[in-house]
Design a protein around this nucleic acid. Structure first.
Lengths: 338, 338
DNA sequence: TTGAAAGCGCTAACAC
DNA sequence: GTGTTAGCGCTTTCAA
């Protein structure tokens, strides 16, 4: 249907190769020839058939970003950044939704889809080191977020333990003593949940506060509903917490809701902190204090690393990059930043 | 790099065509032969090169979903549905973010990208009938959401006017008289904003209430921040509203925030209604009354229509499909559903 | 500086 | 039921 190289070559009275060279600049073309070709291209409205180009080059120009839940604003915000970065580098980004399913993550790793995409950015939650190592697909892989360590792939993440420390230190600094954590995982999954719990425990210890297992609430998933339910359970304890640190902002927002329903004041009765800095947290009542990862940095770095690997470029620096984060104090801990 | 048809053919001692037939079922293959081929496929770990297949078939297997903002949960939720529906039909869905930019929408319509994708689902906000008609790209187009009418393309949307009616009727029914609208557009863009304003005016008239232009707040964009600012302005009026209808849930949530900051009670002083039924609205304090479009229906229908067009199937029924919606009463209008 | 031509891996029309 | 083969549109080597 479309106009192709041959049409242009005929119209301009040159060979296919010459047209290709005008389009790709693979080797020099005489000025007059180039003009004739360019004119033909403009007149006929040619644009290359990327499928054919990719077949020839052995690449598709597609990279995938696989996230456990697209409806988590954190991933939506990350996706928006990654999409534009990929476009800037001449790649098209395909979104995959693993729905936090182990099979979906394995399928991605093992490349049932892999023949179509040149590389994969994966936020793993149900697979670990072993599964990543067992990967057979040959295309580059960049891991983001969760903690699958000691694998021969690029990995972009914040320092989860340090992030927890920062959150807990803040809560301790405003005088809280019974600090709960919501979002521990039942199984061995969600490495980052383990890391965040570890940071929580370490920070409690550093502050001289006791670790109370009953204040660590497990959840099956990591959405608002999970946070709300867990908070209700915590409030039902004989001696409820005076602060809550959520695995992520959605959980913290769910906790805010449960607290409001139960008539507790935030932050007076209970202070709340999350992680992710999703926009929603700036509009809750009260606004949500959070640990803000540098999403722009994560999204851009992940795409750039992946593309560099695909194109065989040298990548300097270590495989694992820890991106910075900041504590954003807002109303839910009573001490908004300026 | 990968294993290809030829490798399998050699291994199994058959021709390329036979292997292709085993894989695609284009024509029958003898049972014994099929087994030998299947064994070779399993042993060598073959999976077809989709690029080559698509080149041959003249299709890429890619469809695009272009939305004005991926970080609007409405679109994220819609995308999640569309991605899985596309996968079920054997297509891969590519997300495009137009960022509500006219140029981005035009580029999509006119197919600078079009050679790679088999079809496009577009939520237009800055282009109208004329631009859609001027489209040169030949691949199928399905419009969702906004009101670009009288064009020869499938269009899936809710009845915006009727949705407004439902919202306003509800507010009138609970005794509100000074009902504001937030999210009118300055220029000629966002057809749906015009339609929603029209529904608002019609419903006011039907209820015998005066139309007060000062209660219609314009916004540049349609996020939480826009809603918050507009609400602040409305509150600064000599005679502020006793109810607010937001163009969408994000705007309504921004309005909630402004009301909370100003110390107004919702719904006692001001009732609030949005449109979209994003999950966030179930967790705000108070929870948000909203008009809930059937996102699942919209997402699935859009993908199915598009695929049907791509594959040249007969599509019955009219081009424009209006999907159902429901009013979900929650705390922000004081009368939660059961 | 330009042209001719060999495929990339696959499908489908045409043979047998 | 199976094999042979001509391309899909493009890039890139080899020649001129």
């Amino acid at each position: 249907m479309g106009v192709n190289l041959k049409d242009i070559a005929q119209r301009a009275g040159v060979s296919l190769a010459t047209v290709s060279n005008v389009v790709n600049g693979y080797r020099p073309v005489g000025e007059r020839t180039r003009q004739r070709v360019q004119q033909a291209i403009d007149e006929l409205g040619y644009s290359p058939n990327l499928g054919a180009r990719h077949l020839r080059r052995g690449r598709t120009g597609l990279i995938a970003l696989a996230v456990p839940e697209l409806t988590n604003p954190y991933f939506a915000e990350l996706a928006e950044i990654a999409i534009s970065e990929a476009a800037a580098l001449g790649y098209t980004l395909v979104m995959e939704n693993t729905a936090a399913q182990r099979e979906a993550e394995l399928a991605l790793l093992d490349g049932s889809r892999q023949r179509v995409i040149d590389g994969l950015i994966l936020s793993p939650v149900r697979v670990g080191r072993k599964e990543v190592l067992a990967r057979t697909a040959g295309s580059p892989l960049v891991l983001i977020g969760e903690g699958v360590y000691d694998v021969p792939h690029d990995h972009i993440a914040i320092d989860n333990v340090a992030a927890s420390h920062a959150a807990i230190r803040h809560l301790v600094a405003i005088g809280r003593r019974r600090i709960a954590f919501i979002g521990a995982t039942p199984g061995g999954d969600r490495q980052s949940a383990h890391l965040r719990v570890r940071g929580y425990r370490e920070a409690l210890a550093a502050a001289g506060l006791p670790y109370r297992p009953r204040l660590v609430a497990r959840t099956d998933a990591f959405g608002r509903l999970d946070g709300m339910r867990a908070m209700r359970d915590l409030l039902a304890l004989g001696d409820p917490p005076d602060a809550v640190f959520g695995y992520n902002d959605l959980i913290a927002i769910g906790a805010l809701r449960a607290l409001a329903e139960a008539g507790h004041r935030v932050p007076e009765d209970v202070a709340v902190v999350g992680i992710d800095d999703i926009e929603e947290g700036r509009f809750t009542a009260p606004t949500l204090t959070t640990i803000a990862p540098d999403k722009r940095e994560i999204g851009r770095l992940a795409v750039r690393r992946l593309v560099a690997r695909i194109e065989g470029a040298e990548v300097e620096g270590p495989l694992t990059v820890q991106t910075p984060f900041r504590l954003l104090r807002r109303e839910s801990t009573g001490t908004p930043d300026a």
